[in-house]
């Protein structure tokens, strides 16, 4: 019996989220009193994995490019051979693409996007967010074998030095006819001309602004602070601000000295892009908005009243 952590690499480098999933997997293994193991498709010797009993390296020419059919078949074979008690993934875009398929093929439900693990009489209880973080749920798997994916930033990666785990090649049997999708090379769209990553102060605006014509309200705050203007995804999707000003998992990652989140509820996709900020100020009318969880200072109130008042106050302070 074991807990199997499926780690993800790109160009031979394991992602940070993979190590966070490993930390979660080690915790789950502790609760179940079994060993943790890791698996990597496309393993490279640069990958240093410690704190597991062994690492399975899965390789096949048909796994060079990611496809949901190829990855599902390969990991299914490893699971059938090892029969782990739990299979743990990082909740990446790639995992979201194939892990539900894999779990369903084995008749199981993936408990996706888990933010914490608790122990209840030697079995793990998983904490998930509902309604974009407004509520939490404690969830238990009904099956013996459990499938879990771990949200970015929810677990701390162990920095303690540890011996590198032995690597074992796991042979997979794949046939080209199993793979239905033909991926082309990944690409990036036009170069970004605005580097929000270098900004010291950012004023970021979300759905709470309601319409494009209201943007001058936050622009005034950005002006008085000498800040860069940024936004959450829906604002850029609507074309109210250019895509290059988007902060979050599909936009830029920022770490300014101060980040003002104005009318942003704080869905995880946004939080991962700005949680490295030194000081976070949130203004939102919903006192239960998850953004307040990330905020050092918060104002619960109507942004259309609070922001202009704040602009006046900052002018006074600066004068």
């Amino acid at each position: 019996m074991s807990v199997l952590v499926v780690m993800e690499q790109r160009d031979g480098k394991l992602s940070r989220m993979s190590f966070e999933a490993l930390a979660a997997g080690q915790q789950i293994a502790g609760i179940l009193d079994v060993q943790a193991q890791a698996a990597v498709i496309g393993y490279s010797d640069n990958a240093k994995i410690a704190g597991v009993e062994r690492v399975f390296a899965l390789d096949d020419p048909l796994l060079t490019e990611y496809t949901p059919d190829g990855y599902t078949a390969a990991i299914e074979q490893l699971i059938q051979a090892q029969q782990p008690q739990a299979v743990v993934f990082p909740h990446t875009y790639q995992v979201r693409d194939y892990a539900p398929k894999l779990a369903a093929r084995l008749g199981k439900v993936l408990i996706s996007d888990v933010v914490a693990v608790k122990a209840e009489e030697a079995s793990p209880v998983f904490v998930r967010q509902l309604f974009q973080g407004k509520l939490n749920a404690d969830v238990k798997a009904a099956s013996e074998q459990q499938f879990v994916s771990i949200q970015a930033g929810a677990f701390r990666v162990s920095e303690a030095p540890a011996a590198r785990a032995p690597v074992e090649r796991f042979p997979v049997k794949l046939d080209a006819s199993q793979i239905r999708s033909k991926p082309e090379a990944p690409f990036r769209e036009a170069q970004r001309s605005i580097d929000l990553g270098a900004a010291e102060v950012i004023v970021s605006v979300g759905r709470g602004i309601k319409e494009k014509d209201n943007l001058p309200i936050v622009e005034a705050l950005a002006d008085v602070l000498g800040a860069e203007l940024a936004a959450s995804r829906p604002i850029c999707d609507n074309g109210w601000l250019p895509m290059e000003r988007q902060v979050g998992s599909s936009g830029q990652t920022v770490s300014p000295k101060v980040y003002f989140a104005i009318g942003i509820s704080g869905a995880i996709q946004h939080l991962v892009g700005m949680k490295g900020s030194k000081t976070v100020v949130a203004i939102n009318k919903d006192e239960n908005a998850p953004i307040f969880e990330a905020a050092d200072y918060g104002v619960v109130g109507d942004l259309f009243e609070v922001v202009p008042a704040l602009v006046d106050e900052i002018k006074k302070v600066k004068a």
Partner: peptide, 28 residues
């Protein structure tokens, strides 16, 4: 069903946030 929901609740805040509310001018 493949899972059981044991509890649904409003998440506790971990971070020490200072929250101002009430009159907008005063909060600002």
């Amino acid at each position: 069903t493949g899972l059981t929901i044991e509890r649904v609740y409003v998440p506790q805040r971990n971070k020490q946030s200072q929250i101002f509310s009430g009159d907008a001018k005063r909060a600002a």
